[in-house]
Simulated assay, not measured.
Amino acid sequence: MPTPRTLLLTGAAGGMGTLMRGLLPRYGYALRLLDLVPIPDEPDAITADLADRGALREAVRGVDAVLHLAGISLEAPFEQILRANIEGTYNLYEAARAEGVRRIVFASSNHAVGFTPLPVGGEPLIPVDTPHRPDTYYGLSKAFGEDLASLYWDRHGIETVSVRIGSCFPEPTTVRMLSIWLSPADAARLFHAALTAEHVGHTVVYGSSANTRLRWDLSPARALGYEPRDDSEPYAAQLIAARGETAPDDPDRTLLGGRFCTDPPMRQH
Score class of each variant (00 low, 15 high):
D230V: 00
L182E: 08
Y152G: 03
Y206P: 03
H202G: 08
W216A: 10
E198A: 15
S209F: 01
Y138Q: 03
Y138W: 04
T160L: 04
A223E: 13
I46N: 09
V205H: 11
L182R: 10
T18F: 06
A149I: 01
A12L: 07
P248W: 07
E58A: 14
Y137V: 00
A48R: 08
F106L: 10
Y93F: 13
L140Q: 11
E79N: 12
G121M: 01
L31P: 05
N110V: 15
V205L: 14
E94C: 04
A76N: 04
V120I: 12
F106M: 06
T136F: 00
R21F: 11
G62F: 07
P38M: 13
H269N: 14
D250K: 09
Y29N: 01
E58M: 05
I46W: 08
R57K: 02
A149K: 03
P251D: 10
V105A: 09
G121N: 01
S73F: 00
G121E: 03
R83N: 07
G157Q: 11
G201W: 13
S219N: 13
A143K: 05
A242G: 11
P170W: 14
I240S: 05
I165F: 14
R102E: 13
L218M: 06
I81A: 06
Y235N: 11
P38I: 10
P134E: 00
Y206H: 08
G244R: 12
S73P: 02
T130A: 15
C261P: 09
A98F: 07
A107W: 03
L218Q: 10
P117N: 15
D263K: 06
G22H: 15
V37M: 13
L92F: 01
D186P: 07
I240Y: 11
A236H: 12
L148D: 00
P4Q: 06
S150G: 15
I126K: 04
P134A: 01
H156Y: 15
A76T: 00
P170I: 14
A223T: 05
L195F: 12
L190E: 10
W181C: 05
L9E: 10
T196C: 09
E99A: 10
R215A: 13
R53P: 00
A65S: 14
I46P: 08
A107E: 04
D147C: 10
V128T: 09
A107Y: 06
E146P: 08
W216Y: 15
A70V: 08
P248E: 08
L34H: 03
L24S: 04
W181N: 11
R259D: 06
I104P: 03
K142Y: 05
N110K: 14
P228Q: 09
L118S: 08
D129M: 08
E159I: 03
I180E: 13
M20Y: 14
L148N: 02
L69D: 00
S109E: 05
D230F: 00
G122A: 01
L214V: 00
Y93G: 00
P119C: 05
D64H: 13
H192M: 04
D52I: 02
T10S: 08
G100L: 11
S208H: 08
D217Q: 03
Q238E: 15
T246D: 15
P38K: 12
I180P: 02
P134C: 02
A76F: 04
H132L: 11
R32E: 01
D249S: 15
T47F: 09
